[in-house]
Amino acid sequence: MVDHSLCENQTDESLVGMSLVDPDHFLCLSRRYEDKLLRYIIRVSKFSREEAEDVLQDVFIKTYYNLNGFDKELKFSSWIYRITHNEAVSAIRKKSVRPSIAFEEEDLVKFGDVFDMTKEMDNSLDRKMIDEALYRLDEKYREVLVLRFLDEKDYTEIADILKKPTSTIGNLILRGKKLFKEEYEKLTYGK
């Protein structure tokens, strides 16, 4: 049995190597990402917590199964986010649900800071409006906005997660912000 307190000082990359020798070490890695990835799945899908947990289980199993394919030139977090993103997208398609964003209070604050909308965002109606404004965006804009402003990934990491050029990510974020603001304003005026 692995002493998980010993994992704490290990980098993701060394834990990958250790997991290949003893699968119990993989528990250290998966625990490290469990909350972040679960939150990400819930944000980009309309899944309940239980459904998101099922997707996350599959993510961990797929990650372990492909562990030898992890290249240390890439950040482990980008790699596991990529797998999570792909699994979430595939689960959304299978269930044919409308992709949506599940906001928590801290998400609202993050979004408010970025879009300078904090004054208006303290009730559930605004939360719904942000959700609706994001839903109205094309998927390509929605996913970069979530990764950039809610998961706080930098451009290179988003490029690695979504497998797109960094310059494309920059353009998508710029355009996505503009479109989101326009949609949000349309909804606010109609309130």
Binding site: P23, D24, F26, L27, S30, R31, E34, L38, E53, L56, Q57, F60, I61, Y64
Partner: peptide
Amino acid sequence: ISQIAIERI
């Protein structure tokens, strides 16, 4: 979830 995943593995 991590524990369940490792048990499945």
